[in-house]
Design a protein around this nucleic acid. Structure first.
Lengths: 354, 354
DNA sequence: TTGTAGGCGTTATCAG
DNA sequence: CTGATAACGCCTACAA
């Protein structure tokens, strides 16, 4: 059998529905129905069409289909590419979307490609709704675009963001779990490193404060300005380890916690002996054996399912009211937290020990 | 001024080009040209159209545009969501694409959404070409789809993958840099942990072998089957640390290196005193201060630029021959490699020390 | 069960 | 410089 050496892509255009219909000897309308599996065409017709499609290696043109359909069944997703939490969520979104007969198209948010740009792109491309995954710091653009197309955020959103529904973990509860975990281990001197200026950061901060008060530790509340990166954690540690160091620290997220832990160890503190560290998110990094960070997990599957369910509701009734769903977080006890030994807050001279 | 309390999205459909043209008092064809900024319309007409578009809050329908244009100027990108190397590359792709007037749409590859599925989706959605980022293990689907649409892989591809061009680091050179670095530090007992069955893994293995021979270390060549994850690194370490442990190890990538390093430390080896560890990719994880892994970096910007340049060439001439570009890697010396002390290969009883 | 025809919103071609 | 008009490929009444 001979095969073409050059695939002459440029010469023979892709076969269209009309070609398939012609080969099958039916009209293109019928062929369309047969291909989509809706009922109407007879069994015989369906077979003919499928055979023709197979023979011609027919591939539908999704763009044309999108334009013609009234319900494109296409959802836009914006996410960051370097956050494994987002990756897990998107993975679950794919599963749910497939189950519900929806297609997903992704607009990535990167340093050079803003959330705004992703949203515009998705809105222009016939998406029926947009699911924005991750900490949406310039949330204004979510509100803005939500007047054109339903938007649901996975991640906390201020209540006054009109039109944008959200699905996220209960940030306050997450911090309460962390505080209670440490209290149970005997800690009282527990400080919190914030995640900067975002909304979920302020929620977690509030949750920490409430939990501390709930544990009768009003006087011990100590808040350090931080951020969502490892570097922010490093800088925060340099602050809270000066003077009277706490025996435990709860960071806004895992990255920040890892940074703080790194710096603490570098300064001679042993984790968890001298300092217990708790992160948040249960990121991939937190699970690295060498890090093995105690953290508060987000249930990715729950978030994805709820997000999709609610997004479809928004599509059906665009005027339905904004909703908010708080998923229950869970404490994951790993090796960076331990009992309070109460043996002083001075760093050891020896860097680390088992 | 009154504002609608409910954004009645469902009631008023988005304004179309025709609406804009009507308001501006011109034909839709003219309006289209004015909006796109091509020359033809008079300055006055252009202003009228722009004003009308502004007033109606007109947003073009990208789907319709895609269908009508002969050159959609749309590129599909497949990538993994949890690999920060890919994230960096995509970031640079966005920059280059914008510069060249192309739009990017992303199809993510996740555990539940195969590369195949992403490719099909992108091909069906009027992309002019697809750039596949990352280690494409089931590369067959790249070849298959390349008969329908130009495909360029960022990452090594076997030579017999017809139709698929590739842009990637020089894997063999990368391993040579690692070997030479270690040799310069006095190491001779250098083993390599592979990345599993992929093509770039076999290239790196070969590169390691060649470099070892080049350094006169034929007898010292020692290869351990590994993988691309931290877990694989852990398992590999359990193997190569049994019996006579090497003084240095080069892993397929950073994740694998980190796993191996973790396990080595857990078993009582000090890094880099007892064991030097080199990764590959210069991933975000490798830069974490607490890990600070010596590695071989990939120039993300170079990869992205070359990929885009070559992709456009493929689009212009689909019958042009497959090309391969090897980007120069660079050794990043961090703190997991050090001089060979030659003080025996037995693990210390003390876990670690400064 | 099947064919026909009109439309989705743009772009592109051609006369005027 | 401008305005009809025909694609683009598919979906979907509606009619047969």
């Amino acid at each position: 059998m001979f095969m073409a050496t050059h695939s002459s892509r440029s010469r023979i255009p892709h076969p269209t529905l009309k070609d398939v219909a012609a080969l099958a000897g039916v009209s293109s309308g019928l062929a369309s129905m047969a291909l989509r599996g809706v009922n109407g065409p007879s069994e015989n017709t369906r077979r003919m069409v499928l055979a023709a499609a197979e023979e011609l290696q027919y591939r539908g043109n999704a763009t044309a289909s999108l334009l013609a359909r009234e319900h494109p069944r296409l959802l836009g997703v914006t996410c960051f590419l370097d956050r494994d939490l987002d990756a897990d969520i998107v993975d679950h979104l794919y599963v749910e979307a497939e189950r519900l007969g929806y297609e997903l198209v992704i607009g990535a948010t990167t340093p050079s490609h803003s959330l705004q740009a992703s949203l515009e792109m998705l809105a222009a491309n016939s998406c029926e709704a947009i699911i924005a995954v991750g900490p949406q710091n310039p949330e204004e653009c979510l509100s803005k675009i939500s007047s054109r197309i339903p938007v649901l955020a996975i991640g906390a959103i201020p209540e006054n963001r009109q039109g944008v529904s959200s699905v996220h973990i209960d940030d306050r509860l997450a911090m309460k779990l962390a505080v209670d975990h440490l209290v149970k281990l005997g800690h009282t001197d527990i400080c919190h490193v914030t995640g900067g200026s975002g909304y979920s950061s302020s929620e977690r901060k509030t949750g920490y404060e409430i939990a501390m008060r709930g544990a009768g530790l009003d006087k011990e509340i100590r808040i350090i300005e931080g951020g969502q990166t490892e570097e922010a954690g490093v800088e925060a540690a340099q602050v809270f380890l000066l003077g009277s160091a706490p025996t435990a620290v709860i960071a806004y997220n895992d990255a920040c916690a890892i940074g703080a832990m790194t710096e603490a160890r570098k300064l001679g503190y042993s984790v968890p002996d001298d300092l217990s560290v708790v992160g948040c998110d249960d990121s991939r990094a937190s699970r690295i054996a060498y890090i093995d960070l105690t953290t508060v997990s987000q249930d990715r599957e729950d978030l994805a399912c709820q997000a999709l369910r609610r997004t479809l509701t928004l599509i059906k009734d665009p005027n339905s009211t904004r909703t908010e769903y708080k998923s229950a977080p869970q404490l994951i006890h790993r090796s960076t937290t331990g009992p309070q030994h109460n043996r002083g807050k001075q760093p050891n001279s020896c860097a680390s020990r088992e």
